[in-house]
């Protein structure tokens, strides 16, 4: 049975699509058949981050409306086996997604895949609600910054009240905190909320901490999920995250500032 995971945040620009692309790719690297669905109808971007923007023929809404089947619509990743992308529609609006339609597509995907990753749009409107409704687990992407943390808490409220699991009285959605754009130097200076601060406020389990990194922009520039940049700090942090998501016990890295030499410590820099 497939596991449905929503990648969500409330606030925009915190790294949902970057994280969806990286984690989806990581799950496939680990040998699990994975599909990443772009739920951001009208503002599709997952295709660009995954580097398959020129291979989009049909989209999610076409499948829901029966204008194309899944086989025609799914884009198979050229780098990694077992990885597929279901792109969002660029021309329709959010109302094009119906609960019945989404459920039908998810059920069909579930027959074939181990993981279904739903890349949620920002906000708390129809599109975001649809992305989280059917989820078994949720990755709540948060920046160590006040508005992002507050919005994440809003989304946690939605997960526990507006999801199918909540409505049908099943076990609640398993929630994971993914802290992105983390800057240990600023945390040390008292300029940024620490991992422990955010964990304490949101009180959910931490699945990963991704350091603020040059590698993320470089990766999106070239359409390569950052997890494939194995030498980069962000790439390694995402790989750790995927392993934790799969139940492995991996120590956290990149949480502290690298130790500087004596001269640097005296004169700064």
């Amino acid at each position: 049975m497939a596991k449905i995971i929503v990648v969500t945040s409330g606030k925009g620009g915190v790294g949902k699509t970057t994280s969806s692309a990286a984690i989806g790719t990581g799950l496939a690297l680990k040998g699990h058949k994975t599909v990443i669905i772009d739920f951001d109808i009208g503002l599709r971007n997952l295709d660009l981050i995954m580097g398959c923007e020129r291979r989009v023929v049909y989209d999610f809404v076409n499948v829901i409306n029966g204008e194309a089947n899944l086989k025609q619509t799914l884009i198979k990743d050229k780098r990694i086996d077992n990885l597929f992308i279901l792109p969002a529609s660029q021309t329709r609006d959010k109302d094009a997604l119906t609960k019945d339609g989404v459920e039908r597509v998810l059920n069909e995907l579930a027959k074939d895949f181990d993981f279904i990753l739903c890349d949620s749009p920002a906000g708390i409107e129809a599109g975001a609600m649809m992305a989280l409704y059917f989820a078994d687990e949720a990755i709540v992407v948060t920046n160590p910054e006040v508005s992002s943390v507050r919005d994440s808490d809003r989304i946690l409220g939605m997960l526990s009240s507006k999801s199918r699991r909540a409505e049908q009285g099943q076990d609640s959605i398993k929630e994971h905190l993914l802290l992105t754009r983390y800057n240990p130097e600023r945390v040390e200076k008292g300029e940024m909320l620490s991992v422990d601060d955010v964990k304490e406020i949101l009180s959910i389990d931490l699945v990963g901490v991704i350091p603020e990194s040059q590698a993320v922009l470089n990766a999106s520039n070239s359409g390569q999920p950052v997890i494939l940049d194995k030498d980069s700090d962000a790439g390694q942090a995402y790989l750790d995250t995927v392993e934790r998501l799969l139940g492995e016990n991996v120590p956290f890295r990149f949480l502290t500032v690298e130790k500087k030499g004596l001269l640097k410590r005296i004169f700064g820099g």
Binding site: E145, V146, V187, G190, E191, L193, I201
Partner: peptide
């Protein structure tokens, strides 16, 4: 320390 202020407000 502005991080502490942020934490308290949140």
């Amino acid at each position: 320390n502005t991080a502490n202020t942020a934490k308290e407000r949140l």
